[in-house]
Design a binder for these strands. Structure first.
Length: 116
DNA sequence: GTTGTGACGACTT
DNA sequence: AAAGTCGCCACAA
């Protein structure tokens, strides 16, 4: 078994339900920065027994990488929606977006007394 | 060895 | 926004 694929599979398995990650993000988590394509390959050849949440991996634009209209595309979208991920204009909105938005609000430089 | 392809991504037009 | 270009590298022919 290729040693490179195992850390990738682990990283994918670690994506929480309702969340999504990108191929590049998974690659970095696996200690293989710049190897996004390898992640795609790893998922393609992943043994079914691992039951990986492969559907939580999208491309950097948070879009499904399969051609729109393909069976795989539809299957992935259905699996994501089943766990609370919504789609707007083909873009995936993770179930944890509310938290991400709050985080952005907390960090956004807003008008008012600000001390550095 | 060389070439083309690809579940990708960052950058530049 | 959309289309190129380039870097990445495993794999098949």
């Amino acid at each position: 078994m290729a040693d490179k694929l195992e850390p990738i599979w682990r990283a994918v398995a670690a994506i929480p339900r309702g969340a999504v990650d990108s191929y590049g993000g998974v690659a970095r988590s696996a200690g293989l920065p710049g190897r996004a394509r390898l992640v795609g390959h790893a998922l393609k050849v992943a043994p079914a027994e691992l039951a990986l949440p492969w559907h939580r991996v999208l491309n950097a634009r948070r879009r499904i990488s399969f051609p729109k209209g393909s069976d795989e595309h539809h299957r992935q979208r259905q699996l994501l929606e089943r766990e609370g991920v919504r789609f707007e204009g083909g873009r995936a909105i993770p179930a944890t977006t509310a938290i991400a938005d709050l985080d952005a609000w907390l960090w956004k430089p807003r008008p008012g007394p600000n001390h550095e």
